[in-house]
């Protein structure tokens, strides 16, 4: 069985790409050998994660100079790959990843500016599909507050953007931030990470069931 490549991308900074990428990779680790590729030239994830004596953390690798070579190399060694993209198209990294990935998850915060910038990702996905027609793309609503009318309205609004949106959402939970402070995923955060783990598991299951 080959490697399934997930990418986490959005041109809007601060929408939770790295957080989703790390926790998604940790969730996939439960299912098979997983590598987390940091395509951000600054290598934030590679510096941020803590592997000292932490069981279950995915292998984190900075993509380095040749992103496409790193993706091809990793795909031969791992069952799952998650690529964290930078918040820009200018470097060409996001475009490269979209042309090589199987699935792209686009985290979107419940705010109008994030919604508006999502349209740029739709264009990027359309462009990538000319080379990679099998690319599956989904919006993932992030930092959702169940009682917020805006969070709820985002679901319908994203449907008008041209790409499907997952029913599963990531809640606005302190566990993501506290785990990030420790350099670990919510899967290693014990009971405090339970609900966040449930969020990630729902996302993974929904993506797999969309096959």
């Amino acid at each position: 069985m080959g490697c399934t490549t997930f990418s986490v991308a959005n041109l809007k900074g601060g929408c939770g790409k790295s957080t989703l990428a790390l926790n998604l990779a940790a969730g996939l680790m439960v299912r098979g050998r997983t590598v987390l590729l940091d395509a951000d030239p600054q290598g934030t994830l590679a510096h941020w994660t803590n592997h000292e004596g932490v069981v279950g953390m995915p292998h984190v690798v900075a993509a380095g100079a040749s992103l496409s070579r790193a993706i091809r190399s990793a795909s031969s060694e791992y069952r799952y790959m998650v690529v964290d993209c930078p918040p820009t198209l200018e470097s060409g990294h996001t475009e490269t990843v979209l042309k090589m990935a199987d699935i792209v998850l686009i985290p979107v915060l419940p705010s109008p500016p994030d919604l508006w910038s999502s349209t740029h990702m739709v264009e990027a996905v359309k462009g990538a599909r000319s080379i990679n027609p099998g690319l599956r793309a989904y919006f993932v609503r992030n930092q959702v507050e169940p009682r917020s009318a805006l969070s709820q309205a985002m679901r319908q609004a994203l449907r008008s953007c041209g790409l499907p949106s997952l029913e599963s959402t990531l809640g606005r939970r302190a566990a993501y931030r506290w785990a990030a402070l420790e350099g670990i995923s919510v899967y290693q955060f014990g009971a405090r990470g339970k609900k966040a783990v449930s969020d990630i598991e729902s996302v993974i299951e929904e993506v797999f069931n969309h096959d």
């Binding site: 508006w116 009318a149 805006l150």
Partner: peptide, 16 residues
């Protein structure tokens, strides 16, 4: 569809 949803969708179309 709620008024808020309509408003958000209209804002997306405007931004496009």
């Amino acid at each position: 569809m709620t008024k808020l949803e309509d408003k958000l969708i209209a804002s997306v179309k405007k931004s496009e």
